[in-house]
Design a protein around this nucleic acid. Sequence first.
DNA 1: TTCCTCCTGCGAATGCTTCGCAGGAGTCTG
DNA 2: CAGACTCCTGCGAAGCATTCGCAGGAGGAA
Lengths: 158, 158
Amino acid sequence: MGRGVQGSAYARGVPHGPVTIDDLVDELRRRGQRATTARRAVLEALLAAGDDHLTADELGRRVRSQHPAIHLSTIYRTLDALTDAGITTVARFADQPLTYHLATDVHHHAVCTRCGATLSLPPALFEPVRKRLLRDHGFHAEPRHLTITGLCRDCAGG
Amino acid sequence: MGRGVQGSAYARGVPHGPVTIDDLVDELRRRGQRATTARRAVLEALLAAGDDHLTADELGRRVRSQHPAIHLSTIYRTLDALTDAGITTVARFADQPLTYHLATDVHHHAVCTRCGATLSLPPALFEPVRKRLLRDHGFHAEPRHLTITGLCRDCAGG
DNA sequence: TTCCTCCTGCGAATGCTTCGCAGGAGTCTG
DNA sequence: CAGACTCCTGCGAAGCATTCGCAGGAGGAA
């Protein structure tokens, strides 16, 4: 397969699973945004992070290890732009700072409000609720990254 | 019914539905906390707010209309204490400041990440997911105030 | 009433995130 | 490949919600 001449990885919406830096950069440009060093670096860091959720600060630290001049405010603006473009997804766990990851990484979360532990959940779990919200309320539940709060096994004491 | 001689409204855990100021103050004391003017005022404001979710700031404004000297930091500390005592519940909608309401008001939310509109949902909707999380992951999903994000009918354009 | 704490007002500090500005880098055009 | 037109960036400061330290005052048990 690979990327064909005419189709980017994003040609039919946000793809699931692995993508390359070039896919991401292409998509960025397709959205009318510029592919700068800072943005490429942020995308590389996100790609390298795999399933992890990174804060702007952590992302800044990683990016600066290669490009020391990149300012934290640029990271924030970049993440804003990427999120607008649908390339990244934001989530806030409890009262932690915002975290970011690639939108290609589709999953939901259960977050412990006491210890902050997170559990990754398969999207299927929420399908019934999603359908119901759509049908009964016209509400389009976030399909890519829901968060449900509560207490983890340890914090619930059993 | 009414409150019997020996049983507070909270005797069997957090009650659903209406409670009085005295129920709330009693419960506070039962938890070993002091019933001060500030705390009573906060509880009154929450009670008067009905189903609304109030920020510390908004709560401060309302409390100060009766007791001008009560400082915002006291509101925060009071809300902390009330939440610790299980009397109030916290929620964050999108990137808004934290909001608070009485724990007796049990409901879930769908929040639009674009316009911030919120939809109140019956607890029953999430029961299947809750049960599943508990059984499969030992995760105790917050029973009193879940939030699910997405786009409302208007923002989804249809 | 007395005493021992806990709670409070106040102001300053913190931490994340955003903003305004002036200069520099991307991209499009020819 | 040069020129021009923006958008993007580094920098520092501002903004906002929330927390903290302190010294004094109010709550409640005896």
